[in-house]
Amino acid sequence: MKIAYSPCPNDTFVFHAWAHGLVPGAPELDVMYADIDITNGLAAAGEGPEVLKLSYAALPWVLDKYALLPCGGALGRGCGPLVLARGGRTPETLAGKRVAVPSERSTAYLLFRLWAAQTVPGGVGEIIVMPFHEIMPAVRDGAIDAGLVIHEARFTYPDYGLSLVADLGSWWEKDTGLPIPLGAIVARRTLDVQAIAGWVRASVEYAWAHPDASREYVLQHAQEMDPEVAKAHIALYVNEFTANLGEDGYAAVEALLGRAADEGLVPRIDPALLR
């Protein structure tokens, strides 16, 4: 079975067991490691593998072909994207400014736009898409006014001399009381989606039961990430919602995509297609 997920520690931790033949009854995996922007595009073009990780923000474009799995993805609290700038910036001072984002089809981007609509008078100015690892240096060097960052940048931005303008996760949780929907695992609707969900959940449970088994695999793909940062990354993004979305998880997805549709950022979805 072909699958695509990122080389980030949370994904390699979750899928280690299945990728290494440790999930009884599960088919062998042919793994493609790809940034979520790439998997979003593959799914939208109808060219994606049978199972893949994508952003919840990309779901409205693919729900006709792919079913959302109730496990394996990334939702959580205290794990939202950050808006960063050099010292002295406040949300109000971002009005009309140039802001770098890692993608325009990401949960981070939707959260940023929803936050800015509430918080930045008149809205921000030019949005510039750039690879996420280039954003903090660009803000530090003054090439852009602020940046939207994700992943391990939560832990490393002080190294670039940057300050926090807003934690979009904290804003979202305060505004909605719900977790943040980040990355989803989807499978083609033509397949046995229930069986695939069972294999994904079994892989998650193996990872929790044998937390050191995936260490070498995780670090191999973590792009020279410090082992302690990788461990913190996993602790943050692999949680109860990874095993089961539950009612709070589904409510969070519906809230994010519903609000984004209200702002004209995504097509409106039929909530029945999420389950």
Results as ranks from 00 to 15, higher is better:
Ile3Cys: 01
Tyr5Ser: 11
Ser6Thr: 15
Pro7Ser: 15
Cys8Ser: 08
Cys8Gln: 13
Pro9Ala: 05
Asn10Cys: 07
Asn10Tyr: 05
Phe13Ile: 01
Phe13Thr: 10
Val14Glu: 04
His16Glu: 10
His16Thr: 03
Ala19Thr: 13
Ala19Trp: 05
His20Leu: 11
His20Asp: 10
Gly21Pro: 00
Gly25Ser: 02
Ala26Gln: 04
Pro27Asn: 11
Glu28Asn: 12
Glu28Arg: 15
Leu29Gln: 15
Asp30Val: 10
Asp30Leu: 08
Val31Asn: 08
Tyr33Trp: 06
Ile36Val: 15
Thr39Ile: 09
Gly41Asp: 15
Gly41Thr: 07
Ala44Gly: 10
Leu54Trp: 03
Ser55Lys: 09
Tyr56Asp: 06
Ala57Asp: 12
Trp61Val: 07
Trp61Ser: 11
Trp61His: 14
Val62Gln: 12
Asp64Gly: 12
Tyr66Trp: 03
Leu68Pro: 01
Pro70Asp: 15
Pro70Ile: 10
Ala74Cys: 07
Ala74Gln: 13
Gly76Tyr: 01
Gly78Phe: 00
Gly80Gln: 01
Leu82Ala: 06
Leu84Ile: 15
Gly87Asn: 04
Ala95Asn: 04
Ala100Val: 02
Val101Gly: 00
Glu104Leu: 08
Arg105Tyr: 07
Ala108Asn: 06
Leu114Asn: 07
Leu114Glu: 04
Ala117Tyr: 01
Ala117Asn: 14
Gly122Ala: 05
Gly123Ala: 10
Val129His: 08
Val129Gln: 12
Met130Arg: 15
Met130Ser: 11
Met130Pro: 08
Met130Tyr: 08
Ala138His: 11
Asp145Tyr: 03
Ala146Cys: 03
Leu148Ala: 05
Val149Tyr: 04
Ala153Leu: 00
Ala153Ile: 00
Arg154His: 13
Phe155Trp: 08
Tyr160His: 10
Gly161Met: 07
Leu164Asn: 08
Val165Thr: 08
Val165Trp: 13
Ala166Ile: 07
Asp167Ser: 08
Leu168Asp: 05
Ser170His: 04
Trp172Asn: 02
Glu173Asn: 02
Glu173Cys: 02
Lys174Ala: 14
Asp175Phe: 00
Thr176Val: 05
Thr176Met: 04
Gly177Lys: 02
Leu178Cys: 02
Leu182Tyr: 04
Leu182Gly: 01
Leu182Ala: 02
Ile185Ala: 05
Ala187Arg: 08
Thr190Phe: 01
Asp192Ile: 03
Gln194Cys: 02
Gln194Asp: 07
Ile196Trp: 11
Trp199Pro: 13
Val200Asn: 12
Val200Met: 13
Arg201Met: 04
Arg201Leu: 14
Ala202Ser: 12
Ser203Lys: 02
Glu205His: 12
Pro211Ala: 02
Ala213Phe: 10
Ser214Asn: 02
Arg215Pro: 01
Glu216Cys: 04
Leu219Gly: 00
Gln223Leu: 11
Glu224Cys: 12
Glu224Leu: 09
Met225Thr: 06
Pro227Phe: 09
Ala232Cys: 11
Leu236Ala: 06
Tyr237Met: 07
Glu240Arg: 15
Phe241Val: 04
Thr242Asn: 11
Asn244Asp: 14
Asn244Tyr: 03
Leu245Asp: 10
Gly249Thr: 12
Gly249Arg: 09
Val253Asp: 04
Ala260His: 14
Asp262Gln: 14
Glu263Pro: 03
Glu263Tyr: 15
Glu263Trp: 13
Pro267Ile: 06
Pro267Ser: 10
Ile269Trp: 14
Pro271Leu: 14
Pro271Ser: 14
Leu274Asp: 12
Leu274Ile: 13
